[in-house]
Amino acid sequence: MARNASVQTKVGFTVLAWTVALLLFSPILWTIVTAFKTEAEAIATPPTFLPLTFTLDNFGDVQDRSDYIKHAWNSILVSVGSTLLGLVIAIPAAWSMAFAPTKRTKDILMWMLSTKMMPAVGVLIPIYLIFRDLRLLDTVHGLTIIMTLINLPIIIWMLYTYFKEIPVDILEAARMDGAELWNEIVHVLVPMAIPGIASTLLLNVILAWNEAFWTITLTSGRAGTLTAFISSFSSPQGLFLAKLSAASLLAIAPILLLGWFSQKQLVRGLTFGAVK
């Protein structure tokens, strides 16, 4: 029986699993450790693993040079703002696709998804020109708009999948009970879809937080987010590994914490349809 696997097999698999996990995690671990080293030690050969001289100077330098707080604030504004804006557009869209489908609904869903298959650089020039002419370059609201548009297909798809699980009878009951569309969505659909909406929200905050292509190309100083902040440290003026690591750590820490605290919700939401 497979369940009575010998002790050796169990130990073997455990070691293997840990090895793979550590291998995958090692770059992040390396970044974390390096952030606390001096610049000299960061490039020392042979490299040290734990810092010989533990220092927090890198974090101070990083804040002085590039204003971490401002970038972090921009990241929060853009990721949360674009997700909320996306939800406001996507909830009615997913409602209509799930509960009032037409012959073309499936095609529209596929078409929306297909936009995600296109490489972003493909539309770089037109978007850049539009942003320049509308004076949206290097603005937080411009970035929020583009981030909303980028993630909208995913938000709609996810919500559509969750909404499909909700029995249409219950929405019809609400209509019979005198609920107009707005009340039907606010009092019945949304509360019933809270787990799905929460997962969608979390995933999209994470995606928007980590998005680098558009945030780097469409911002310079004012509206830069944390991804732009990291990239500013890998500039050719000289590679400061320890500072780059400190910057990266500062940039990913909030989202890692968010992911860590919400992992139950994320997993539950992402497997919502599968388990039922």
Binding site: D169, I170, A173, R175, P191
Partner: peptide, 20 residues
């Protein structure tokens, strides 16, 4: 007219109660 304006009440086979 939409259902909300007709002033009729319906009882469904599935009961269709609001679970939340």
């Amino acid at each position: 007219a939409p259902p909300a304006r007709r002033g009729l009440a319906m009882v469904f086979q599935s009961y269709a109660l609001y679970p939340h």
